[in-house]
Design a binder for these strands. Sequence first.
DNA 1: TTTTATGCAAATTTTTTGCATGTCA
DNA 2: TGACATGCAAAAAATTTGCATAAAA
Lengths: 151, 151
Amino acid sequence: MFRTDLNKLPDAAEVLRAAGLRITAPRRAILEELAHDKTHPTAVELYERLLPNHPGMAFATVYNTLNALSRAGYVSPLTLGGATRFDPITEPHDHLVCRRCGSIEDLAPVASGEPAPASVGGFAIDRVERVFRGVCASCQREPDVDPSGTR
Amino acid sequence: MFRTDLNKLPDAAEVLRAAGLRITAPRRAILEELAHDKTHPTAVELYERLLPNHPGMAFATVYNTLNALSRAGYVSPLTLGGATRFDPITEPHDHLVCRRCGSIEDLAPVASGEPAPASVGGFAIDRVERVFRGVCASCQREPDVDPSGTR
DNA sequence: TTTTATGCAAATTTTTTGCATGTCA
DNA sequence: TGACATGCAAAAAATTTGCATAAAA
């Protein structure tokens, strides 16, 4: 899902084909919207963004498409608390989550010292997800709020 | 939340006191049930386990108590997909999640080579969560199912 | 023309809140 | 007492499914 040139966006049709899914207008729209979105939107958020330009599109279609793409490995679901978010980048990378504002940033394929173990006591590991939680630069500048730690 | 001797279970009352919460019978029961549970139960699961011995207990109480304890840092919420699960262990440790059966195993404070970065581009990191996904030993013995990758 | 997807609606599941009453400190 | 928690109920949010029609292969 990377791109080096605006004229060479990953072709939605190709992704769908590779995923073994039929190429339809709604799916292309969903995939393209997600590819341009850096905020790791939820299914509902994506749906709301698409609706204005795609009257009649059903939420179930967005939902089903995201799930199908996730299962096929062409989109990564992020479960960080709250509704499931979707990441168009499938290459392994970590995430920074701000506990104040909830913003999510991609963290470049961390120059991780240790390679993830491939197996632990018979458990075959094929994927590692890391979530770094803390406070983003922007929120650190804000005056302290709600010391109760709520949220 | 560790214990080296069964006679020295972490005292629920002490935990509640430390968390700044009032000590009540329902909360003690919730905390004790969770402390003994190795399955990382959801709020609903915990509630169902408690109900038989605590008639009249309200789900909202379980739910609110778990959230209060989470905010205070005496219980760790796990968002691995599906409903939020709760882990009585607050010491940092990783999790192994089987994509076949959904089982969750604690992974001893991994002898992680690199220490988690404390800061990345102004983002102050204070917590790292790692999820290792794969197939558990037990499921590897099962005949292959659903090659579509669903789930 | 056979299979799969869409739109629409409804059902589930999960999370959250309001409020009167009861309890802890 | 006064603040906080419980139980009960209902609401809100998020996820999932059924089905008739429409479109893709």
